[in-house]
Design a protein around this nucleic acid. Structure first.
Lengths: 185, 185
DNA sequence: GTCTATAACAGGATAGAC
DNA sequence: GTCTATCCTGTTATAGAC
């Protein structure tokens, strides 16, 4: 067999960039091939089920990144919750490149994407909620308040990403991260 | 000339429904023709510049609806600001059908849509901010606080719409509207 | 103003050579 | 495992009859 032209751990980030900026329908195989340096037929060798499988893999890849770099930090009991939150917010800032990059949930949230990935999106969002709720209870909040804070934190992240894009002002996102930190202060 | 099969004021809502749920790329002329009851060629008669012009018209149509039904209420000096807010929030609930419908800004916020409508989206979002800021100052808030509240209100609306869709729970959106009301309480 | 028909192209997907 | 070549379908858009 020929050597892989691009390893999986380089392939997925490249595909991710396209899906995040273009959405599911907007991401064409032509562009997905270009950014990976592979021909379309080679992409089908890696992902026999085509575009849908590529998008699924991207969703899973993002989920793993977030689990490793955000959830695991938020719930790491060795550190005080204030420290965990601070570190996690830095990682969230990285995830969205300071507001420049969009969320994959949003990118897959138009009809076509929802038809395929509704369950994965729901699960992913619930994972975010649980991680933040875990942090809240570690800070001594009641279950109810911890849940409310978690939900509001996600609303803030998603909403501020939309407004940052629409108003072309990444400070909206950055300030929102600070606001989240203060809410738990 | 033959009679119009569908008047502009019926045509635009139909187009709007498709663009809102599918996004710019996901909205096909085939479906746009179906929902309007017109053939594709007839759509081109109404919108010579094709899909882009249809989307522009939808954006403008939504802007007018919002101006009439939300901004004008929020800034109507005859009524006390608390009343204005209450009425406006009811209209916002209608605009998004209790969380079931998405925002046109979001639908046009993937790359292809931004390339075409960035300026329109930015202007539309600033109109929302100004209307809410106007309300805040009418309630006696400082300029700075009124601006902060306006921004947070939009973040709440956009974020809660995303989470409502992703988690398939429209109560997230509905509760957020109540929360906005309380913030100005 | 709407229609049928069709052009021109892009998109997703596959076959088979190397 | 990657490639070239190709297929087929869907998509945007236009021509011209009514």
């Amino acid at each position: 067999m020929r050597p892989q032209k691009i390893a999986d751990d380089q392939l997925l980030p490249a595909l991710t960039r396209v899906f995040r900026t273009k959405g599911y329908e907007g991401a064409s195989l032509k562009e997905l091939a270009e950014v990976t340096g592979l021909k379309k037929a080679s992409l089908y060798h890696r992902f026999p089920d085509g575009k849908q499988e590529m998008a699924e893999s991207v969703l899973e890849y993002m989920g793993q990144w977030v689990t490793t770099n955000i959830f695991n930090i938020l719930t790491k009991e060795e550190f005080p919750p204030e420290t965990r939150l601070k570190h996690a917010l830095v990682q969230i800032g990285k995830l969205y490149d300071g507001g420049k990059d969009g969320c994959i949930f949003r990118a897959f949230s138009m009809q076509a994407g929802l038809d395929l990935f509704q369950e994965g999106i729901k699960k992913g969002m619930n994972d975010w909620l649980n991680a933040f709720k875990n942090l809240g209870t570690a800070m001594g909040l009641s279950d109810k308040i911890a849940e409310e804070n978690a939900l509001q934190s996600l609303i803030d992240i998603q909403g501020s990403l939309i407004l940052s894009k629409g108003l072309q002002d990444n400070n909206i996102f950055k300030n929102t991260l600070k606001k989240i930190e203060n809410r738990y202060g």
